[in-house]
Design a binder for these strands. Structure first.
Lengths: 209, 209
DNA sequence: TACTTGTTGACTGTCGACAATTACTTTTGG
DNA sequence: CCAAAAGTAATTGTCGACAGTCAACAAGTA
C-alpha cells in the first residue's frame, strides 16, 4: 500500500537530505522564492517544509528576515549527545529488561548490516542504521513521549555524525564495535554495564556513533 | 521594547488558551475555514497556528481529514509526567548545584506568588507559576536541548494539570507545599533529597503539581 | 566627517481563489 | 431489499498575487 506524501513533506525530506549531506552547508540562507521555483511548488509549501526543519533544529528562522542552515558548535554537539543520552538511559529503565529477546534480535540484525555498511564505507547507511539501532531501544521502553522527544533530536544527531566523521575521520569499525557492546549488555540483562556503555557511547566517544 | 507577534502566533496563543481552559474540549474538531472567519484571518494563518499546536501535542492533525483537540488518557498523563521527570532530573545533575543561590531566590519568589494564587484559587496563575518554577531549574542547568525538550512538553502538562485539578479537586495548598520541598532541597544542596522529592512530585503525586 | 533621514530592493507575511480529496447521500441494477 | 456506483457537500491542499517589513545604501544636514 502506498502512502500519501504531501508536498511540504516531500520538500522537507529533500531539504533535510541536502543539509545532512552538506549540499546545503551551515550558514546557507534559504530563500523561499528560490526554492519554490526550483521545486516547482508555491512558497507556502516551502514555508511549511521549513517549519518542520526548524522544529528539528536543522535551520533557524528569523521572522521577517531569513532562514538559515544551523551551524553546530562543539558545545551544541555535546549538548545534543547529552540529551540523547539522558533519554535513552531513562528508556532502558522501563520495561526493557523484561521483554528484551526480540529487542536483542533487532539489535543484532542492525549490527550485522552496520558492519557491512562500515566495510563499504557507506555513510548514509551507517547513519540510518545508527538511528534504527537506538530507536529500537526507545520503542521497547513503551514510553511514547521519550520516543517523541528522542526523534526530535535525531536529525540534529545525523548532521552531527556526518560532519564529525568527515572532519575527524572517525574509525567506523570502532563505532560499530561500540554498538556491539551495547547490544551485548542488553542481551546479558546487565543494566549497570549497559548504562556505563551508554555513557561511554555518548559522553566520552564524541559524536555518539 | 516592543516585540512583533505574528498572526499565526497570536492565533496559536488564543487557541492554546481555549484548549487549556476547556473552552475547546477534547475531541473538538477544528475547521480551518470556521476559525479563519472567526479570527478574521486567512486559512493559511490558521494552518500555521495549528502546526504549532500539533507540535505541542495539543491537537492531532489527520492529513486531508480534520484536526482535533487531543484527548489525554490516564496513560498519557503518566507518560508526560515521566518524561518531564526524566528531563528535570537530568537537568539538576548539571551545574545546578554550583551556582544555585540565584536559583533559590527565583524559586522562593515563585513560591510566594504561588501561595497567594493557591489561596485565591487562581488556576491560571498556578499553572503559569508551576511552569516558571520548573523552568527556572531547567534554565540553570545550561543544557539547551534539555530545556527545549522540556518546553515541548509544557503545554501538554498544563492541559493535564487543569483537567486533573478540576476533576479530582486537588488540594492546591498541598501542591504548593510539594514545590516548597523541592526548593528546600535545592537550597540545602542535597541532591539525593532533591531527586526523591522530584520523584514524589511527578511519579507519585499524580498530575505533577 | 559624522549623523540623521529618505529611498530602494529583496524578502517574508498574508490573503482569496481554485484544485484535490474525503465523507456522505442518492441512485441504480440485481 | 441490498450492494455497488455515481453524484454531491464539506473540508483540506496548493497556488499566485499583493502588502508589509527590514537592511543597505544614497542623499541631505550640521
Amino acid at each position: 500500500m502506498l502512502e500519501h506524501v504531501s508536498l511540504p513533506e516531500a520538500v522537507g525530506r529533500e531539504l533535510r537530505h541536502r543539509i545532512l549531506n552538506n549540499e546545503l552547508p551551515a550558514e546557507t540562507r534559504l530563500v523561499e522564492a528560490n526554492l519554490a521555483a526550483e521545486f516547482g511548488v508555491s512558497r507556502g509549501t516551502i514555508r511549511d517544509a521549513m517549519r518542520s526543519l526548524q522544529a528539528e533544529g536543522l535551520i533557524a528562522i528569523v521572522p521577517r528576515r531569513y532562514s538559515v542552515v544551523t551551524r553546530m558548535s562543539q558545545e551544541d554537539a555535546e549538548d545534543v549527545c547529552y540529551a540523547r543520552y539522558v533519554l535513552e538511559n531513562a528508556a532502558v529503565s522501563n520495561g526493557l529488561w523484561e521483554q528484551r529477546s526480540e529487542l536483542v534480535a533487532g539489535l543484532r540484525e542492525a549490527l550485522t548490516e552496520m558492519t557491512a555498511a562500515a566495510e563499504a564505507n557507506d555513510m548514509d547507511a551507517i547513519v540510518e542504521l545508527d538511528t534504527r539501532f537506538h530507536q529500537l531501544m526507545l520503542d521497547t521502553s513503551g514510553r511514547r513521549r521519550l520516543k517523541d522527544l528522542w526523534s526530535m533530536l535525531n536529525s540534529q544527531m545525523g548532521a552531527l555524525m556526518r560532519s564529525e566523521i568527515e572532519r575527524q575521520g572517525i574509525d567506523l569499525a570502532e563505532a560499530v564495535e561500540r554498538h556491539r557492546v551495547l547490544a551485548d549488555a542488553v542481551e546479558a540483562g546487565d543494566s549497570v554495564k549497559f548504562r556505563e556503555a551508554l555513557r561511554l557511547h555518548y559522553v566520552e566517544g564524541f559524536p555518539g556513533l
